[in-house]
Design a protein around this nucleic acid. Structure first.
Length: 428
RNA sequence: GCGAGCGUAGCCAAGUGGUUAAGGCAGCGGUUUGUGGUACCGCCAUUCGGGGGUUCAAGUCCCCUCGUUCGCCCCA
């Protein structure tokens, strides 16, 4: 009980699981790199102010989920709960807009929200996100959505659905909000408690309540799509037409409302049916007002974030983690032989082989047992005899064939030996 | 912040008030002092997340606490 453990809602990512993370990172880097996105690394904490202004003080994230503290210089500091605000701050502060044209940025790293942990939800979690700044073109929305689907597809994920909506511009939303409140007010007594509370504060969120009675009422509510201005409507039509032309399937969901205040026009989520209650794998949308809100030039933008823990959960359901392929397992016995073993192992690694060296000093029998379990293709044996003659015994673990070689022969023709290793591996 | 379930070895666990806490996997040692995947044998929890209480007697019942899981809320 005296052991110190990781804080609630945080965890260590260890051996078999780490393979999924590395695979995700590789796919993400590849897809975003080819689409000319530049990685940006911003601080993990920022002035509390940034999130209050950017995300919105009334949102749940800001009002009750932030890790906020005062540092030794009396500064109000918050561990970032999401990545967009920091990326936009960096865009403004570094005057990336001065380079002209469109900036395509991506980031990855830990985010922090003080919430009760649950399946697919932690206090420290990780996101990959993209932000395209400086274009109001519907193609930017489409590009970004298409890349998200590409990443998920290349990871082999199934059972995903893209939910799509438009929340219009500020003016559209205000009109719609008034109409919605007008519609809902007569039903107020029939709404669930949370929704009643939200009627004034944040009525749009009532639309995606999980309460059955509320859902039935929300189903008949006026749709935001009927309140879009001509410009908003045209933008959204272009997005939809283009997605269809691309073959990206989507479900129009007028009840989709996102929890951060900065969204305008296109809003979307990619959900999985294999995740339990926290079904959203990727969420994003357009945020044309945020850059100006944070003190930058008026700059339209669109982006998304993917929750990496949730991806890992899905990948784990699909297939076991790949194990590292091992070429050689080196066993040795005796003082001279043991001294030779570490040198041989290192030289083989330097030549490009993967090599595990048995350090146990136990009997050969035990070392062979471990060699067998290591998954290595070949075992290299150095005992007193071999050490005496600068030789090594090479044992093929699958066939049990073995042969004595000069160490110089093995190292001198290592490419040929590696070919044989690969042949043996492919036959297995 | 609210609700429910769970916490026995590194892992999976049996145990539902009564003498010494099953079993399996992994690990270590041996049969086999230079040759593995099988088999057999041995070792591996003075103690059941922590604290308090009830009782002649508690892993087992009660209270508190911590952790964990799932759900609500919210979101990635």
């Amino acid at each position: 009980m005296a052991i110190i453990q990781a804080l609630r809602g945080t965890k260590d990512i260890c051996a078999p699981e780490i393979a999924y993370w590395q695979r995700i990172e590789a796919v993400v880097r590849d897809c975003l790199g080819r689409a000319t996105f530049q990685e940006i690394r911003t601080p993990i904490f920022e002035q509390t102010n940034l999130f209050e202004r950017g995300i919105g003080e009334a949102t749940d994230v800001v009002s009750k989920e932030m890790y906020t503290f005062t540092d030794r210089g009396d500064r109000q500091i918050t561990l970032r709960p999401e990545g967009t605000a920091g990326a936009v701050r960096a865009y403004i502060e570094n005057k990336l807009f001065a380079q002209g044209g469109v900036q395509r940025l991506w980031y990855t790293g830990p985010m922090f929200r003080y919430e009760r942990p649950q399946a697919g939800r932690q206090r420290q979690f990780h996101q990959v996100g993209v932000e395209v700044l400086g274009s109001a073109d519907a193609r930017a929305d489409v590009e970004v959505i298409a890349i998200a689907t590409e990443i998920l597809q290349k990871l082999g994920l199934k059972n995903l659905s893209l939910q799509l909506n438009s929340v219009g511009n500020g003016e559209d939303r205000q009109k719609y909000r008034a109409a919605l409140v007008e519609y809902l007010t007569p039903f107020k007594a029939d709404l669930d408690q949370d929704s009643q509370d939200r009627l004034e504060r944040n009525p749009l969120r009532i639309l995606d309540s999980k309460d059955k009675k509320t859902q039935a009422i929300a189903k008949e509510a006026p749709s935001i799509l009927d309140y879009l201005s001509d410009g908003s409507k045209k933008h959204f039509d272009q997005v939809q037409t283009s997605l269809t032309a691309l073959g990206v399937e989507y479900h129009l969901n007028p009840c989709l409302v996102r929890g951060l205040d900065y969204y305008t026009h296109t809003a979307f989520e990619i959900q999985s049916s294999d995740l339990g209650a926290q079904a959203t794998v990727c969420g994003g949308g357009r945020y044309d007002g945020l850059v100006a809100e944070l003190g930058g030039p008026d700059t339209p933008a669109v982006g998304w974030a993917i929750g990496l823990e949730r991806l890992v959960i899905l990948l784990q359901q699909l297939a076991a983690a790949p194990v590292n392929e091992l070429d050689f397992y080196v066993v040795s016995r005796g003082e001279k032989a043991e001294a030779a073993s570490v040198i041989l192992a290192h030289k083989l690694r330097f030549a490009g082989c993967s090599v595990e060296l048995d350090l146990s000093g136990s009997a050969f029998g035990k070392q062979f047992k471990r060699a067998d379990r290591s998954g290595a293709i070949a075992c290299l044996v150095i005992g007193d005899n071999e050490a005496e003659n600068n030789q090594v015994q090479l044992k093929w673990l699958q066939t049990k064939d073995q042969q004595i070689l000069a160490q110089s022969e093995l190292l001198g023709n290592i490419d040929q030996w590696r070919q044989k290793i690969n042949q043996a591996r492919n036959q297995a």
